[in-house]
């Protein structure tokens, strides 16, 4: 089992609130993602069993929604918004700066498995651009100094 007891209990509780259990699929994917950090076929099967829906329905939903990585990532998944409002304030150069700081290219993970860097579509933080999301947290109004400090703090925490 990949999913722990707490996740399974949470999925079952959530799914039972809806008039139809199938509505519990997306919340279950979110719960699994928060526990594991990514999703895979084994997890779809465990979810299907946990909330009593066909496996194929879980897999179908999971593969449609891009928020959930389907491969393991580093401990910290850095997602830089590259959409228009952020791009106007230097999102492309923010990505380059992170590439340089981390010594990886976009889409890669650092050797110590700490950071994965990707860029994503609009995260709804347009008036506080440029911004990035690391795991579930938003970091807004970014500057070079702020990015340096954030990475330092995450390294210290790891």
């Amino acid at each position: 089992m990949i999913l722990n007891k707490e996740s399974v209990a949470l999925m079952q509780k959530k799914a039972s609130q809806y008039p139809r259990r199938k509505s519990g699929i997306l919340p279950a994917l979110t719960i699994a993602y928060r526990q594991v950090g990514h999703l895979n076929d084994q997890i779809y099967r465990e979810i299907a069993k946990a909330i009593n829906v066909p496996y194929v329905e879980v897999a179908e939903a999971a593969t449609f929604y891009t928020m959930f990585p389907k491969q393991p990532t580093g401990k910290y998944l850095i997602q830089v918004c590259h959409n228009i409002s952020c791009a106007l304030l230097g999102a492309d150069s923010l990505v380059e700066y992170l590439e340089q700081k981390l010594g990886i290219k976009k889409g890669e993970t650092t050797k110590d498995n700490l950071f994965t860097l990707i860029s994503v579509e609009c995260l709804g933080s347009c008036a506080t651009a440029p911004m990035m999301q690391i795991n579930m947290d938003y970091y807004e109004n970014l500057t070079r100094a702020k990015v340096d400090k954030i990475l330092e703090e995450l390294r210290a925490k790891a």
Binding site: Y18, R20, K22, S23, L26, E57, E60, A61, F64
Partner: peptide, 27 residues
């Protein structure tokens, strides 16, 4: 009332796609 979290799909802001998504379908 139920709080439902989405999966990162812009299309789900369109009301019928949102409803499909809420039902556990692709958006």
């Amino acid at each position: 009332m139920i709080v439902h979290s989405g999966g990162g799909a812009y299309i789900c802001g369109e009301e019928t796609a949102l409803l499909n998504s809420l039902e556990g379908e692709k958006g």
